[in-house]
Design a protein around this nucleic acid. Sequence first.
DNA 1: TTTTCTCCCTACCGATCGGTAAGGACGATC
DNA 2: GATCGTCCTTACCGATCGGTAGGGAGAAAA
Lengths: 209, 209
Amino acid sequence: MSKTTREQLLDAARRQFANKGYYGASIAGIAQELGLSKQALLHHFGSKEKLYGEILKGISDRMLSAIIRIRSDVQDPRAQLEALMLGNLDIQAAQREEAQILMREVLDNRARAEQAGTWYLKPFLDALVDIVRQTPTGRGLGQAEALALVIQLLGAISYFAVSEPTLKRMFGESAYAEMTSHYPEQLRALIRARLGGVSSAPFAGTQTA
Amino acid sequence: MSKTTREQLLDAARRQFANKGYYGASIAGIAQELGLSKQALLHHFGSKEKLYGEILKGISDRMLSAIIRIRSDVQDPRAQLEALMLGNLDIQAAQREEAQILMREVLDNRARAEQAGTWYLKPFLDALVDIVRQTPTGRGLGQAEALALVIQLLGAISYFAVSEPTLKRMFGESAYAEMTSHYPEQLRALIRARLGGVSSAPFAGTQTA
DNA sequence: TTTTCTCCCTACCGATCGGTAAGGACGATC
DNA sequence: GATCGTCCTTACCGATCGGTAGGGAGAAAA
């Protein structure tokens, strides 16, 4: 409740960038959500580009810290993957918006500030490839094959997070809710089918014998 | 070489809509690609919305006819899935652009002409769910669970098609090319791991015993 | 030759975009 | 009380957007 204007603006901006994209969202529209003029927004962030950059940085920071935390908390690489996929890239409101922003970033391929949108994805992908190649299935794979597998898994979860509004409209609220309730288990099934099952509970952090 | 102006405009429009999105692409920019003015484009299509609609319709027609063709040509449902995923949603230039457009359509969630972007996706998804529920693995799944599985598979391939420019920039042309060469086999591995292997060649259309 | 149709042009319109300029309200500091 | 920085305002700017109005070139039809 005691959120600063700046934080409220960031929230509104994240929502609008996720829903309409960078060009589709206007700084006037974002500011209007709080009953402010666009110059109030410019006062806090300087320019639209800088505002967007701050949102990207927030996403990046969250992802990287999640990697570090999970890699130190969890031992089994397959459990690490499950935790990263189901935990970090979760399906909560803010997380889904972030997934949408990332998907747009990947789609747009624009040279925004020296590929600001991609430099921070690289360490995330590298870490995932690294983890995959530590699993029994992944040990036999080359770098490119492991990357292909990572992209598949990322796609499986991102696509779901991203297509929520469309799926809702297509199948109705209740059908979508039912599907959502099944999605984590289906995702776990996919990861295990492809990489081999994890011995115990996903977050247990099974010690390396 | 004897492509009509109209067809060339459609090609240019598809490319620009894929790269920049609906709002990012301008009709003046599309027409300029052929050295024409935007009124030349408006003469052929009437409005930007109608131009975009024609492109969506083209994608829709291609997808639906692929479903019909494959469902009649191939018997085994798992082989149908493989054929639809690896054949229809292929990774050629035009197909990739179509995948990008569809991804943007799914992301945007705008009410364009009574959800023009989604009505034609529905039968495609319905068909895929139908096919999945004919496989040994899918027979035990409810509608929602089967849909979740379909979204996973669609995500795995769409995400790859869509993130090509980003991946290229991140890992370099050669690494991307190597990954691309491995992708179909990795995708087949994913489908088989999740749905059970197909007895013989994927396109053989194994008769129902 | 005149008419008509196709295809494309220049010129212009209102709306909206991101951003600048200048200043008012208000609390803290001196 | 005067000064200063924070936060926000209205007013305005140039650029670009999709779309309209009207006309010119040129082939086909009369």
